[in-house]
Structure formats: C-alpha cells, structure tokens
C-alpha cells in the first residue's frame, strides 16, 4: 500500500499537525518508504493467531472506586500557557 498527496494531507489533519504544501511530497516519500518496509508482514501466516493485548500475563489490578487525588487546580494549571482563574484558555469554540 502507498499513500498519495491527498492522503498525506488527510493524515496530517487527523494528527492535527500543520503541513506546508512544499513538505507534502517529501513526507509522502518517507511514509511510503516505511509502509514498504512494513509490507513484509503480509507474508506472515497469522491465521488463528490472537493479537497481543498484554505482553505480561496478568490480571489488571483494580482499586476501590473512590477519589484518591484532586483539589489542586494550581498544580494542574501551573504549566499551562494561558489560564484565567481556574480555567485553561482556548480560542472561542462555540459561537
């Protein structure tokens, strides 16, 4: 499988990364090189093989469903580039 310029733009948008027009062709080449490399997986017989979901056989530990953390808005907001009171600031989303 290989990707065309339209697909490169679509992937970039899905990934929320701006890509300039003059970068598309180069990215297309690189992505296709990697897709060609991984293409060899198609020769593996995976009939009846379970996909891996956990590399270590273990049952996920569960904890009581209680609040264990929180109430520290200052720490949560400390690294935010734009805040007001206890909120993150973003451009207007809803008209």
């Amino acid at each position: 499988m290989s990707v065309d310029a339209t697909t490169v733009r679509r992937i970039a948008h899905l990934a929320r990364v701006a890509v300039a027009d003059d970068e598309v062709e180069h990215l297309r080449g690189e992505i296709n090189a990697i897709l060609a490399f991984v293409e060899q997986l198609s020769e593996v017989d995976v009939e009846g093989v379970e996909p891996m979901t956990s590399v270590t056989p273990m049952v996920m530990k569960k904890r009581p469903d209680v609040v264990t953390d929180g109430g520290d808005a200052d720490a949560v907001l400390r690294n935010a580039p734009a805040t007001e009171k206890n909120y993150f600031l973003v451009p207007k989303v809803v008209e």
């Binding site: 580039p81 451009p91 989303v93």
Partner: peptide, 23 residues
C-alpha cells in the same frame, strides 16, 4: 495540544492552534 502545558502557537481557531503548535 498547546492548551494544558508546553508550547502554544496561535491559530485562527482551536484546530489552527493545535495544528500550528504541533507543527
């Protein structure tokens, strides 16, 4: 995403902010 921590590059809307920040 340019909202909660790290670099933030403005854009014309929220998607523009994400895309420019990440680019």
């Amino acid at each position: 995403d340019g909202v909660r921590y790290g670099l933030r590059v403005p854009g014309r809307d929220i998607n523009g902010l994400y895309e420019n920040t990440r680019a």
